[in-house]
Amino acid sequence: MPEPVISIEGLHKSYGDVEAVRGVDLRVEAGEIFAVVGPNGAGKTTTLEILEGYLDRDAGRVEVLGTDPAEPTRAWRERIGIVLQETALETLLSVRESLELYAGYYSAPRPVDEVIDLVGLAGEANRRAGRLSGGQKRRLDVGLALVGDPDLLFLDEPTTGFDPSARRQAWQMVAGLRDLGKTVLLTTHYMEEAQFLADRVAVINHGVVVADDTPERLGDRGNLPTRISFQVPSGGPSPEEAGIEGITIEPGSHDEILKATFESSSPTADLARLTSWAVEAGIELESLEARRPTLEDVYLDLTNR
């Protein structure tokens, strides 16, 4: 088995009396996009800043690219790129100048123009950082982390505060890093983001990892029942006649409508039974929907325990 890019065992960190991280274990493999999710104050940023070499830990074993981040070396810093939670840019330097400044910090930087294209700022290369939009500033920030051509990239809430289209652009950019063979560790509050980008997701709550799996399997998501819902006119044949167990029927949005829902572990068979009943009874199943639990459903369940 190849060495993991990041391995954490029994990580602890307290601020005074507050235990921010209480025994985190994680492994991130090379080439993965790994998302860490969890409520505010769960210990995500503390964990990240320990991995980045900013914070000392109280206990636990941590290795990042084979090095203990508590003793960062120059050679190690050459191989990692960091985007902090708060964007920090020299507002008076242009996009190109900002990247040139950071390129000078690395022994083998990626060409500046390549990075400008990679983060989608070709049109703003000569614009000062202070005059960019919020999303563009964040992308320049990611560019500064990429200009050293790192093997591992840390992104702390890279798209917080973005509008939906800026978020999509940022996702395309991060997904593109996978093609470059980079390993990415990101934190996020957006489950859609974790779903779209991540190969694996870890949920941190109250300083411990409560779940760690692929987005599809997280929290036993793959085995959770499908939720099926539809509407029928009131006063007609009742959906109860379809012979489905556990169906609940409630009044719909107005008098003439009833809303029916049930959870099914064999949705194909149940849907077949339901639709044949409806065809025979000659009624239309309005707003028919079969919904798998989303990552957000699982996340809320895991973090509200």
Partner: peptide
């Protein structure tokens, strides 16, 4: 205060 020094310290630059 802008976080520029912190960000810079995350690079190989002494």
């Amino acid at each position: 205060e802008a976080g520029l020094l912190k960000r810079g310290r995350g690079t190989p630059q002494p």
